[in-house]
Design a binder for these strands. Structure first.
Lengths: 199, 199
DNA sequence: CGATCTATTTATAAGTT
DNA sequence: TAACTTATAAATAGATC
C-alpha cells in the first residue's frame, strides 16, 4: 500500500529500513490499540530494531500483567510436576526456572506489595506447602489416634495383670513375688470380659 | 477499510466482536511478520481476548528471548530506584526479582548467570521438599511403630484374658460363662510378669 | 458457524518540501 | 533529516455462501 508494491524481504538500504521501521512500527502500535478497544482485549507488542533498540507498548492490561499471563500459560504444562522429583531427575536450569516462575506467579497473582526477598520466599514456601501441610495434618491425626489406642491398651493390660496377680495370691497366699506386676489398684472380682476401650 | 467506516470503540455485539478480533488479530500478526522481515527486527505480540484466551506470536527471535530482553530493559529502569519506595508502590514479585537480578549483575556475577537467583531459589525449594519428604518418612516410621505396638498390645491382652478365664474356671469349675473372652490357647500356669513386647 | 467476496477505508512507499 | 503529500497497495466490514 504505497506508490508501488513492495516484496516482503529485507530492505537493503539502512536508511530506508530505518524509515520503514519507524512507519510500520507506529502502524502496528495503532493497530494493536484499535484491536484492544474494538474487542475489549489486551494486546502487548515488543519490538527490537536491527540496531537493538527496544520498543514496547501495551493496551488493555499492563505489559507486566500480559507477560505474566503468557508465562503462566506457557509454564502450565510444567506446574503440576513435583519440584523435588524433577530436581532428582536432573532438571535443566531452564525447566526449573519455568516451574519456579510459575509457582511465583501462582503465589502472586494479585501483585501484593513486598518489602524483601525474604517475604517473597515466605510466600513461595507457603504456597508450596499447602498440600503438604494437609498431608502432615492427616498424618498427625493418625499418629495421635494410634497413641491414644496404645495408652488405652496399656491401661487394659495393666488392669488384667493386676487381676491375675490378685487371683494368684488367692490361690497361693504365701507367695511374696512381686516385681513389675505389682498391682496398684484392685477391681471387682469378676474378670472383665472386654474392656470398653477400642472401637 | 471496509464497506463503511467504523469508529474505534467497543463493539457491542459479542459475535461481531469475535469476528473482528479474529480478523484483526491475523492482520496484526501479519504486520508484525512483515516488519520483522523488512527491517531485520524482532517482534513479539501477545493478545488476550475478551474471553481470556491468549494468543501469541513472535518473529525474529523467540518469544522467550524478546520477553527477557524487555524484562532486563525494564529492570534497568527500575534498578536505581529506592527499594523500599518501590515496595510501597506495590512492586510485584516479578519486578522485585528483576531488580535483584540487576543488582546481581552489577555485583558482576558473570553474564551467563543472570538467572542464578531464580535458579538458586528453585534449588532451595527442592531442598525444602526433600526436607519435607524426610519428615514424612519419619512420620510414617512413627505410624508403623505405633501400629506394631498396638498389635502386640492386643496380643498381650488376649493372652491375659485367656489366663484369667482359665483361672476363673479352676476356681469355679462349674462356671460355663464364656463370651468374648473365651480363650483359644493356653499358656503355662505362671502368670507372665511382663510380656517382652514394648521397648 | 467459518470461509470467501468485494466495496471501501486505511496504511504506507515514494515523492516533495 | 524529518514532515507532509499522494498514488496505490493492503486490510477489512459487511454481505454472501
Amino acid at each position: 500500500m504505497g506508490r508501488r508494491k513492495v516484496e516482503i524481504k529485507r530492505i537493503e538500504s539502512k536508511s530506508s529500513q530505518q524509515v520503514t521501521f519507524c512507519k510500520r512500527r507506529n502502524g502496528l502500535i495503532e493497530k494493536a490499540r484499535q484491536l484492544s478497544v474494538l474487542c475489549e482485549s489486551s494486546v502487548a507488542i515488543l519490538m527490537v530494531s536491527s540496531t537493538g533498540k527496544l520498543y514496547s507498548s501495551s493496551f488493555g492490561d499492563s505489559m507486566a500483567k500480559i507477560i505474566k499471563r503468557y508465562e503462566i500459560q506457557h509454564a502450565a504444562a510444567l506446574k503440576n510436576m513435583d519440584l523435588a522429583e524433577k530436581s532428582r531427575n536432573y532438571l535443566s536450569h531452564k525447566e526449573l526456572l519455568e516451574i519456579v516462575k510459575c509457582k511465583l506467579d501462582e503465589a502472586n497473582l494479585d501483585d501484593a506489595s513486598v518489602e524483601s526477598l525474604i517475604y517473597l520466599e515466605g510466600q513461595f514456601k507457603a504456597a508450596l506447602s499447602v498440600t503438604r501441610a494437609r498431608k502432615t495434618e492427616l498424618m498427625w491425626e493418625l499418629v495421635k489416634n494410634l497413641e491414644e489406642k496404645e495408652k488405652l491398651l496399656r491401661e487394659e493390660n495393666h488392669i488384667l495383670v493386676s487381676q491375675l496377680a490378685k487371683m494368684e495370691k488367692k490361690r497361693l497366699p504365701e507367695t511374696e513375688d512381686e516385681g513389675a506386676m505389682s498391682s496398684v489398684n484392685s477391681y471387682g472380682n469378676s474378670p472383665p470380659k472386654t474392656l470398653p476401650l477400642l472401637k
